[in-house]
Computed example of a mutant assay.
Amino acid sequence: MKSLWVFHVNTGACNGCDIEILDVLTPYYDIERLGVKLVPTPRHAHALLVTGPLTRQAYHAAKMAYEAMPPKPRIVIAVGTCACSGGIFHDSYALRREYRESLEYPLKGGTSEFLPVHLYIPGCPRGQRKSSTALRSSKTSWRKKSGKGGSVRAPSFSRGRASTRG
């Protein structure tokens, strides 16, 4: 298998990052031709794409989606400032928190507080070029992690379209 299948979970976002993800799937950027496909169920996914701060209501859904994924490889991608660090909602009462006695607490609502994040894509909202490049690099790391081998060239951009041609 040469494609990276991605399942998207919105854990309380304002939908800015969700719209940017949909833009990457449109024919203008066409991330599917680069081998990244959005799937409707986590059982078929290799990567979990998380947007938004991790709210108390969405925590169990995100955890169940992560556990439903195949065991190897599991890649978690945090998209947007809210998923990376909690963003503007970092001190909200609605965020899921665990009180730990360590110097790193609190992480303030970031996805990495509860899921092992492999790739961070910060920005509010981050652009389509950054998203498509990061998803392409996550495909490369997936191939290395799963032992599929092969070399994958990073996409180059010309006039707003992603291209793998030299």
Rank of each mutant, 00 (worst) to 15 (best):
F114L: 14
P73C: 05
I77S: 11
H90T: 04
H90G: 03
K144V: 10
P70D: 04
G160T: 05
G80M: 02
P73E: 06
G127C: 08
S132L: 14
G86P: 03
E104V: 10
L135C: 11
E104N: 10
E104S: 12
P122G: 01
K108F: 03
P125K: 01
S138L: 11
Y93C: 06
S132C: 13
V50A: 14
V76M: 11
E113K: 09
L54P: 08
L49K: 13
R143F: 11
H90N: 02
K108Y: 08
K130P: 00
G160M: 02
H46F: 00
G150D: 09
C124Q: 00
R159Q: 05
K130H: 03
S156I: 08
G147I: 04
R129H: 06
S85F: 01
R153H: 02
G149K: 10
G160F: 06
P71V: 01
A78V: 14
T51S: 15
P106E: 04
G149V: 04
Y105F: 12
Y105S: 12
K72A: 09
K145W: 05
R126G: 05
P116M: 02
P70W: 04
L48R: 15
G160I: 00
Q128C: 07
R136N: 05
S158G: 01
Y105V: 10
G110Q: 06
R96N: 12
T41D: 13
L49W: 13
L103D: 09
P42E: 11
P155C: 03
A61I: 14
R129Q: 07
A78W: 15
I121S: 02
C82N: 05
Q128W: 04
F157D: 05
R129V: 00
R100F: 11
L119F: 09
L119S: 09
S158H: 11
G80Y: 04
R56M: 05
K63M: 14
Y120G: 05
T133I: 08
G127M: 05
T140L: 08
S151R: 09
G52T: 07
G160Q: 06
I121M: 10
R136M: 12
F114Y: 14
L115T: 13
F157I: 07
